[in-house]
Write a protein that binds this DNA or RNA. Structure first.
Length: 259
DNA sequence: ATGACTCCAATGTGGAGA
């Protein structure tokens, strides 16, 4: 089975591209971030015609996450329970597979703006709350996949300019420590389970021909639990949609698990 | 370069993203 994650930077603007991508890549589940629309405007019907059900968690203007799936998603949770977060950043649900229940957690992690900002402090709190929740989620759901736009470049090789950007947002030690703390829960970066091309990124700035010059960051990730690790067959970044007219600034990441 | 590009809310221009 295949699970994908894609920050589409407005589902209103990108719906046609999402449908085209799904037609070419009929994954079992697609996790979206930055819907930028309220739930009453979510395009359930267009997605249903494409063969996907959706659990959405949106808000006006900013944020918003959804899980699209070919088969029903159950036990859906919106945001980290008890977190009182006013921003729509997490949606989770369970898919029943031939190998048992698979818990899927989709996050639009806080950007954090700058290391000395209030938004960065919020990012740190948010990451801690996610970590604390996932610790218990993993006990309840040994087969768990955490996907999303993490807004963290975990290592220097995940940035086009690790020296020039050292200590700036996405590159700070605090953010990387949080990423490592997620791995320490018993999660594995699916992309790094395989040999990958150098300079592999999932996001490129719209400005200054960022994509054309491959000045990007690898900040969209798929983490799999220990129980799922032996099942992972591949993990790839699909750069093709970034070449579309009016693209999202992020590319989809896809993991393939043994059937 | 407090930039660049894109989206949103809104019709002025600024916030936010990363």
């Amino acid at each position: 089975m295949q699970i994908a994650t894609w920050n589409i930077n407005s589902l209103t603007v990108r719906l046609a591209q999402v449908l085209a991508w799904l037609a070419a890549n009929p994954v079992d589940a697609l996790c979206l971030q930055e819907l930028k629309l309220t739930d009453d405007k979510f395009p359930h019907e267009a997605l249903r015609e494409a063969g996907y059900e959706a659990a959405a968690f949106g808000q006006k203007t900013y944020n918003g996450v959804a899980i699209l799936s070919r088969k029903p998603l159950r036990d859906v949770v919106r945001n980290v329970p008890g977190s009182e977060d006013t921003q729509a950043r997490v949606i989770a649900g369970t898919l029943d597979t031939p190998h048992g229940a698979l818990r899927l957690v989709n996050g639009y992690f806080v950007n954090g703006q700058a290391p000395d900002s209030e938004k960065f402090a919020y990012k740190m709190q948010w990451l801690q709350a996610l970590q604390d929740w996932l610790r218990t989620e993993l006990v309840a759901h040994p087969q768990l996949v955490l996907v999303g736009d993490f807004n963290v470049a975990p290592e220097d090789r995940d940035s086009y300019d690790p020296i020039g950007l050292a200590g700036t947002i996405h590159h700070t030690q605090e953010e990387r420590d949080h990423f490592q703390a997620l791995l320490a829960l018993g999660l594995h970066d699916a992309y790094r389970l395989f040999e990958q091309p150098e300079k592999s990124y999932s996001w490129w700035d719209y400005r200054m021909l960022g994509f054309q010059k491959n000045r990007g960051l690898r900040i969209d990730h798929i983490l799999v639990s220990e129980a799922l690790r032996p099942s992972v067959r591949a993990c790839t970044i699909d750069r093709a949609p970034r070449k579309n007219p009016q693209p999202s600034d992020h590319a989809p990441v896809v993991v393939t698990l043994a059937d």
